[in-house]
Write a protein that binds this DNA or RNA. Structure first.
Length: 486
RNA sequence: GCCCCCAUCGUCUAGCGGUCUAGGACGCCAGCCUUUCAAGCUGGAAAUCAGCGGUUCAAAUCCGCUUGGGGGCACCA
């Protein structure tokens, strides 16, 4: 199989790609890389009316972000281009002509209004909606009459009226459809553009695609494609219909499911490696225990045989957990690189920019195991950057400690700290004994100082935090806390 | 409505006739660690394997039916 594998990701630029689309791309990519085949990107822009500006770029960006590089397609070229279907119109028209000559198709002059009305009728009678084949056997005369009226026809495929259409799906096994339940679908629209069915089949053949891995939603159009391949004298590729990724309501992913666009995950601070890992495990598994798996291992082990059949709900919680796992694996340098952009946009405007990387390098290790999604970073770390802390004075004398006690403790602490070198070890050497001296539990003193210095009750370890903040800032904040208590 | 697909803890999944009183992970709960929060570690609750019939010495695993869920049914992809 190795030398012949050519797979493709063929999205239509009608919107920003969501995780479901990209999961399909990922499986194709993994399949190609596993068998050392080719991964082809083809843009199926045959619907002029639904084309969305910037969608193609969003597709490129999404794939690039995840590191799903394509061997042929926009930007890289290839021997089977062009890779935009809108640039291949003549090809489809030629093929359609061939089909006309072969009698596999016919011209249909039915107006959209009539078709719509027909479907409404069918629905009302609880009949399956589908083209009633009115134009299937038009006489020469009827045809010329319609032509004389200036109607531009569409080209429809002549489906068999009876019999079964069978095909082997690599994931579903044998799938059988009754031909009688399938209607004559459109191949060429009246604007001269091909429909998905025509363009997709033609291009998959012309581009020598060996395996079509696509979402399950395509399963029911596969028998049509099989017929088309037959009429064209093409050998169909192998099909593998991937289980769908579902929203929390178990329905097909759509805009109404909230943040599903892939780029949104980038914006929120997910790492591409984590997303790849997570997406790969949605519908595929290595074994009974592997959760964290590298791209290399995925490529080495990916196989269609281990792709499941049931749809999978996209679980944000688990993705967030996994992202945290990947964040913790980052080196300090990598973490600084990753986090900087998020701080730039997330920190209040009052913080002076640019943020010093040196300062930041000190605090990054304190944050690294406390973050799951990079976008959380500024909220978690803002006290390292802002000048004025804003918090409720009551936090300073919460449990067990009264106002006077807090004032006294802060006062002494300030005094001792003044003479203390500001590294974590020295700070601990001074503050731990101080707690005993004051007759306070360490937790009480440290908690008090934590609030004074960070403005919150939950923060990174106190000594490291104080060391990073520096003596000046800490003393000033303790003074501010004292003032707040008065 | 018609056609097709699917069905193991709330979620993602392992399981491909006996090793399953069903394993792992997320989340949840508890304990440990600990200056808080995390992280980490340990333990726990959580699935009568959708139901019912078969086949078989033996079924989560094979078959059928039912139910439930999903997808498709455009001059959209």
């Amino acid at each position: 199989m190795s030398d012949s594998v050519r797979v493709r990701f063929a999205p239509s630029p009608t919107g920003i790609p969501h995780v479901g689309n990209i999961r399909t791309a990922l499986f194709n990519w993994l399949f190609a890389r596993h068998y050392k085949g080719s991964f082809i990107l083809r843009i199926e822009d045959t619907d002029v009316t639904r084309k969305v500006e910037g969608a193609a770029e969003a597709i490129f960006d999404s794939l690039t972000w995840l590191g799903l590089d394509w061997d042929e397609g926009p930007g890289v070229g290839g021997d089977y281009g062009p890779y935009f279907q809108s640039q291949r119109l003549e090809i489809y028209q030629d093929i359609a002509k061939r089909l006309v000559e072969g009698g596999y198709v016919y011209f249909c002059y039915c107006s959209p209004q009539r078709l719509e009305e027909m479907r409404r009728e069918q629905m009302k009678r609880k009949q399956p909606p589908g083209y009633d084949r009115r134009c299937r056997d038009l006489t020469e005369k009827e045809r010329t009459e319609f032509e004389a009226q200036g109607i531009t026809p569409v080209v429809r495929f002549r489906m068999p009226l009876e019999g079964q259409i069978k095909f082997q799906d690599l994931i579903r096994g044998e799938v059988v459809f009754e031909a009688a339940t399938l209607d004559d679908f459109v191949l060429l629209k009246s604007d001269g553009y091909p429909t998905y069915h025509l363009a997709n089949v033609v291009d998959d053949h012309l581009m020598r695609i060996s395996h079509v891995l696509r979402a399950d939603e395509w399963l029911s159009s596969t028998p049509r494609h099989i017929q088309l391949y037959g009429a064209l004298g093409y050998v169909p590729p192998q099909f593998a219909h991937l289980p769908m990724i579902l929203g929390s309501d178990r329905a097909k992913l759509s805009k109404r499911h909230g943040a599903t666009s892939l780029m949104e995950y980038q914006k929120q601070g997910f790492l591409p490696e984590a997303v790849v890992n997570f997406l790969a495990l949605l519908g595929w598994s290595l074994d009974d225990k592997t959760d964290i798996i590298s791209r290399e291992e995925l490529v080495a082990n990916f196989s269609i045989e281990r792709v499941g059949k049931a749809g999978a709900i996209f679980n944000h919680e688990k993705l967030a957990w996994m992202n945290g796992m990947y964040i913790r694996k980052l080196s300090t340098e990598e973490m600084v690189q990753q986090v900087m952009p998020f701080l730039e946009v997330g920190l209040p405007k009052t913080v002076t920019r640019p943020i010093s990387p040196d300062y930041f390098r000190q605090i990054v290790p304190l944050l690294q195991e406390r973050v799951r999604v990079l976008g959380e970073i500024s909220e978690l770390a803002d006290f390292f950057f802002v000048e004025e802390l804003d918090y409720d004075a009551e936090l300073l004398h919460k449990k067990g400690m009264d106002r006077e006690g807090a004032i006294a403790a802060l006062w002494v602490s300030r005094e001792r700290l003044e003479a203390c070198p500001f590294d974590a070890a020295s700070l601990e050497g001074v503050l731990r004994p101080l707690a005993a001296e004051l007759g306070l539990k360490t937790g009480a003193l440290f908690g008090l100082l934590r609030v004074a210095v960070t403005g919150r009750t939950a923060a990174p370890p106190l000594f490291e935090t104080m060391a990073a903040l520096g003596k000046d800032r800490c003393l000033k904040r303790i003074e501010a806390a004292l003032a707040r208590l008065k």
